[in-house]
């Protein structure tokens, strides 16, 4: 049943996200693209929308993917799933473990999860770069110079202008896409 599956997937994603929205991308990629729910490209579109609309990234993504798969009820189920682990864990901490920050071993456990996340994110990025540039195969003839150019220029823009917000990066790359795919295709 799609609703139960949506709930469980997003519950797991919520449970294993430590340190903010982007930390959940490797698991989302694996679960959502892996289950054939969305193509990798669709998921990138969803990330773009989640980043440029108000609200927490994780909730936006859950709502969007839930809606795609199961309408409004699907959204509700996915959102409840992604939020519930936070709610339960923090209630337990607020109620019973006032000195949570003093439990060094548990904290180190979670810190180490963040170390793993770094490796996982870089693996996802590699996969996405290849996908943007080569499409589904590894055909050199289909090398997408525009996608490559946008990635390189946006990366350096952010290096130079450190304050550049995510939304501005999205807008700039959208404009570059419009110009070099639409108006003056290379």
């Amino acid at each position: 049943m799609i609703y139960l599956e949506l709930f469980l997937v997003f519950f797991l994603v919520g449970l294993f996200t430590i340190g903010g929205g982007y930390a959940m991308i490797p698991m989302l990629q694996e679960q959502i693209v892996g289950r054939g729910w969305l193509e990798a490209e669709d998921l990138l579109n969803v990330f773009a929308i989640s980043e440029s609309t108000p609200g927490p990234f994780a909730v936006n993504t859950a709502t969007f993917v839930g809606y795609d798969l199961g309408g409004v009820l699907g959204s509700a189920v996915a959102t409840i799933g992604v939020v519930l682990p936070s709610f339960i864990i923090i209630l337990i901490i607020a109620r019973f473990i006032y000195n949570f920050l003093e439990y060094k071993s548990i904290r180190t456990g979670f810190e180490t999860v963040k170390v793993i996340v770094v490796g996982l994110i870089f693996a996802v990025v590699l996969e996405l770069i290849l996908k943007n540039v080569f499409g589904d195969g590894f055909d050199l003839k289909s090398f997408d110079f525009v996608a490559f150019g946008i990635m390189v220029s946006v990366f350096f823009l952010k290096l130079v202008f450190k304050k550049l917000s995510a939304i501005k990066i999205i807008i700039i790359s959208g404009i570059l896409g419009l110009i070099f795919y639409g108006i003056f295709p290379l």
Binding site: E41, L44, N45, F47, A48, E51, V125, L128, I129, N132, V146, A147, F148, I150, M151, V154, F155, K158, I169, I170, I172, S173, G174, I175, L176, G177, L178, F180, Y181
Partner: peptide
């Protein structure tokens, strides 16, 4: 274009 930006 945006998908390339989001990758970054």
């Amino acid at each position: 274009g945006i998908r390339a930006g989001v990758t970054v």
